[in-house]
Design a protein around this nucleic acid. Structure first.
Lengths: 120, 120
DNA sequence: CCGCATCCGTTACGATACTG
DNA sequence: CAGTATCGTAACGGATGCGG
């Protein structure tokens, strides 16, 4: 078992490995993507994205990303209802990574995924 | 069920989502990392990395990444024994993404992961 | 030996139903 | 609307076996 803090266990001291310990799944970076593109977003906004995340997965990811301070409530002291999530500075700093991923996919995934869009 | 080709099912036409359909797990990008840092690498080289991937996971990831043409055998017509894997052009093109992840982790994961190394 | 494949227990995911 | 509970399925992780 590796060192576990805040619900994530760090496999090694490598920064890339550590980044993947947090973001290395199919959903976390999509949540960040939605926030980067649309700005503050509510629970049901996320559910309306075309990839159709399940409600329990969404809730657990939002909780984890919040505890890691990549996202936060737009209105901290209000109730959950209509209280959107927004990026912190740490979350916003992922923009270049997502842009790089998008550019890579467009250049190198065309053959495998013909119907991929030209721009996100 | 989404469209499935080559063992990956594409959740949407978004390039970011498509990139994560391929690379959105805890191991694929670590394999790419090892190849970017060390050059051609054998099966047991990967096993020796500090994150300790399981043998079955490694085999299945190498197979998938090969089928997607992100990696390839250094010596295509030789047997598997001591026949390293290396990056294709598509795989090499992920370098900026991994560099971005590394820089992000160093800037924004210090608090959560104190023992993280300074440079990968 | 090295490169896997197979088995099996455990964990994560995914869909849906349900609650405050 | 914003989650939680439940339950079936898929992925992971470790151990082991086996062919070249």
């Amino acid at each position: 078992m590796a060192t576990e803090i805040d619900g994530v266990d760090w496999r090694s001291v490598c920064p890339i490995s550590s980044a993947l310990d947090v973001l290395g799944d199919k959903w976390s970076l999509l949540i960040i993507r939605d926030l980067l593109i649309h700005g503050p977003r509510t629970y049901s906004d996320f559910l309306a994205s075309p990839e159709h995340i399940a409600t329990n997965i969404l809730a657990s990811r939002l909780k984890l990303l919040t505890s890691l301070k990549l996202i936060e409530r737009a209105n901290p002291q209000a109730t959950a209802r209509n209280n959107a999530f927004q990026l912190t500075e740490s979350g916003t700093a992922l923009r270049p990574v997502l842009e790089g991923l998008a550019r890579w996919a467009q250049s190198h995934l065309k053959d495998q995924h013909r119907s991929m869009a030209s721009i996100s």
